[in-house]
Amino acid sequence: MSAAIARRFEAARAVVADAARLAMSMRPPPGGPVGIQKSAQDWLTEADGAVEAFISQRMATLFPDDGFQGEEGGMTRKGGLLWVVDPIDGTSNYARGRNRWCVSLGLLEDNKPVAGIVAAPALNETYTALIGHGAHLNGTKMQASPVKDTRSAMLEMGWSNRVPKDVFMDRIGAFLDLGAMPRSGGSGALALTDVACGRLDGYLEIVINLWDVAGALPILAEAGARVSPFLEEGGLEGGASILAVAPHIAEAVATASKMKLLP
Rank of each mutant, 00 (worst) to 15 (best):
M75F: 12
M157K: 02
R98Y: 15
E156A: 15
M1W: 07
L236H: 08
I5Q: 07
A250G: 04
I172L: 15
G80V: 12
P182E: 09
H248P: 08
P182M: 11
L44Q: 05
H248Q: 14
D42N: 13
P64Q: 05
V167K: 12
A20G: 14
A221I: 14
G79T: 04
P218I: 06
S145A: 09
G179L: 12
A23Q: 03
L123A: 12
V51Y: 03
Y127P: 00
R183P: 03
E109T: 06
T61H: 13
A23D: 02
C197H: 10
A196R: 01
N138C: 12
A12E: 05
D170Q: 14
V15G: 00
A11Q: 12
G235T: 01
D201P: 04
V118N: 02
N161E: 14
M1F: 11
L231V: 06
D170M: 12
A191D: 06
I206K: 08
P182Q: 02
A50D: 01
R171V: 11
A144W: 02
L107F: 03
A4I: 13
G185E: 15
P263A: 06
G239P: 02
S145I: 00
S104D: 01
L130G: 02
R77S: 03
G188A: 15
A196E: 04
T150Q: 02
F230Y: 11
A153I: 08
V227G: 02
A122V: 09
S104E: 04
F63Y: 04
R13I: 13
S257Q: 08
L217G: 02
D89A: 07
V195E: 00
K258A: 12
W101R: 01
G239A: 10
V163T: 10
I131V: 15
A180M: 11
G90V: 05
A6V: 13
A53P: 10
A135L: 08
G239C: 04
L62F: 05
E109P: 07
D149Y: 08
A216E: 00
V195K: 00
K260N: 09
L81S: 14
D177R: 13
G106A: 09
R151A: 13
E233W: 07
I5D: 04
D48P: 08
A214R: 01
N124M: 12
L200A: 08
G235V: 01
T126R: 03
V15P: 00
T126C: 10
K148D: 15
V118G: 00
L82K: 03
A244Q: 07
A119W: 07
E156C: 14
P164C: 09
P121S: 14
E205D: 12
S92H: 10
V227H: 06
T76H: 11
T128G: 07
G215R: 04
T126Q: 07
E237V: 11
A119N: 05
A246N: 07
I36Y: 10
F175S: 05
G116C: 10
D212I: 12
I88Y: 02
I206V: 10
A221P: 00
H136A: 07
S92F: 09
Y203V: 06
A256E: 09
G49I: 13
G139S: 09
A115L: 11
V213L: 11
A19V: 07
F54C: 09
V167H: 12
G139Q: 07
G158A: 12
N99W: 13
E125C: 10
F63C: 07
K148E: 13
W159D: 09
V207R: 10
P164L: 11
N111E: 15
L236T: 02
R7K: 13
N209A: 13
V118A: 03
Q57K: 11
M24W: 11
G106E: 03
V118T: 03
